[in-house]
Simulated assay, not measured.
Amino acid sequence: MIIQQIIEIINTNQTFLVVAHENPDGDAIGSTLGLALALRDMGKEVVAYNVNSVPAVMRFLPESDFISNSLPENAGFDVAFVLDAGDLERTTLPVKDLCQTLINIDHHPDSTFGDPCYLDTTACATAVLIYRLLSACQYPMSLPVAKALYLGILSDTGSFRYSSANQEAFLVAGELVGLGVDPWEVSSNLYESHAPERMKLLGMVLPTLHIAASGRYASVVLTLDALKKSGALEEHADGFVNYPRSISGVEVALFFNQISSDLYKISFRSRGNIDVGSLAHKLGGGGHHNAAGAKLSGSLDEVKTSVFTLLDQLLS
């Protein structure tokens, strides 16, 4: 069994790198921190890395500063865990050059790199896969690890609102609450502790709302100019794609995020009937059936035209 293979690798090695995708969401941060702290508790030497800083709303997690956005000089590791990345390039690190063994743990489709590769697309979050692994290790889960994993599950299930919120999501969350996690503490920090700059930015993004003539998809746009005027950071726009998705009749929501003068990152969210993962794949990106993303070059009008044309074809 692949979990036993990973346990054997943990037991027979000493130095570990734990890394997830850039622009980390709650699952990426929760999985990274949970696994890294657990490995440290096991007596291992661990570096937890993300190219971006931990988002402010997640810094309440105990020892969140254990995740660093820099590596030690001449870094090298026995084992690298790549979590929730979907694609190795999203770590922004030459991971294969930094380790002897690369382990991929993920729930994104087509995430097939790594040896071993622990992939389960039925899992609600990568944090659940980390929970399975640590349970199989008979690790006596600490409260900091439990909080991190709970945040990952809460975030990736949309507070248990998404279709990914399966029976295992509730069972594991219940176990973590039983270990001392306070659901109110986690949810209030994650969803009700936003910076004023986020609200200013939201006020600039919502007027960009576009609803298709069919009413079946809707989008909003974040420009670099809006970021500058609001004083916000890109992380403050996390979750903005959910506003167009909340409109009655909308099956697909899109969030166009300007990265540079002629580059946009597009986030897709589906209510379930439309496979936005396949749509993102056609645009050079990837993701799940209900949540995916891609990057496209061009002006905003050109990017919108390309995406809307494919989406109209998909919906027809």
Rank of each mutant, 00 (worst) to 15 (best):
L154V: 15
A291S: 11
P109Y: 00
V79D: 07
S111F: 01
D97N: 14
I10N: 02
A169Q: 11
N69P: 07
G114A: 04
S159T: 14
V252G: 11
L233P: 00
S270H: 00
V46T: 08
V177P: 05
L311V: 05
L209H: 01
Q5V: 12
G286H: 05
L206A: 08
C137G: 05
R216S: 08
T305G: 03
A165L: 03
I2C: 05
I6V: 13
N74K: 14
N273Q: 13
I67K: 07
E22Y: 05
I153P: 10
Q167I: 12
S270G: 11
G231Q: 06
Y191V: 09
L98A: 09
G231W: 01
D225A: 14
P144I: 02
L83M: 05
I7F: 01
R161C: 13
P62M: 06
R198N: 01
A48P: 07
G34H: 04
H281M: 10
V82Q: 05
A75H: 09
I103P: 01
E185R: 05
N104V: 02
I10V: 12
N52T: 12
V181D: 05
L263H: 11
V82R: 06
A75L: 10
S68T: 15
G286N: 10
W184I: 15
G284V: 07
D275F: 04
V220M: 09
L206C: 06
P62K: 12
D87V: 12
F170Y: 14
I105Q: 04
R161K: 15
F268V: 09
L254T: 13
L296V: 12
F16A: 13
R198M: 02
A127R: 08
S316L: 11
R132I: 01
S163I: 12
L314G: 00
H107Q: 04
L263Q: 14
D87L: 12
K200L: 14
A148Y: 01
C117T: 08
I211A: 11
L283M: 14
K200H: 13
L315D: 01
S278T: 15
L310P: 02
E302A: 13
L61R: 07
A146C: 09
Y131M: 12
N290K: 03
G239Q: 09
A173F: 02
R245H: 06
G293D: 06
C137R: 14
G114R: 03
S142R: 07
A56P: 10
Q258E: 12
S297T: 12
R90P: 02
V172R: 06
N13P: 03
Y243L: 13
V51C: 15
A75M: 12
L263T: 15
V307G: 03
L314Q: 15
L254H: 04
F170D: 13
G272F: 00
G114F: 02
D312K: 09
H288F: 02
F308W: 08
Q4Y: 11
S297A: 15
T91D: 03
I211Q: 11
G293P: 02
V307P: 01
R216Y: 00
L134Y: 02
E302P: 07
D27N: 08
E251C: 05
Q14T: 13
S306T: 15
S31W: 03
S230D: 06
A38P: 08
A48K: 04
D225M: 00
I130T: 01
V19E: 06
I274K: 09
R269M: 09
F66T: 11
H210E: 13
A125R: 06
N11E: 14
S214C: 07
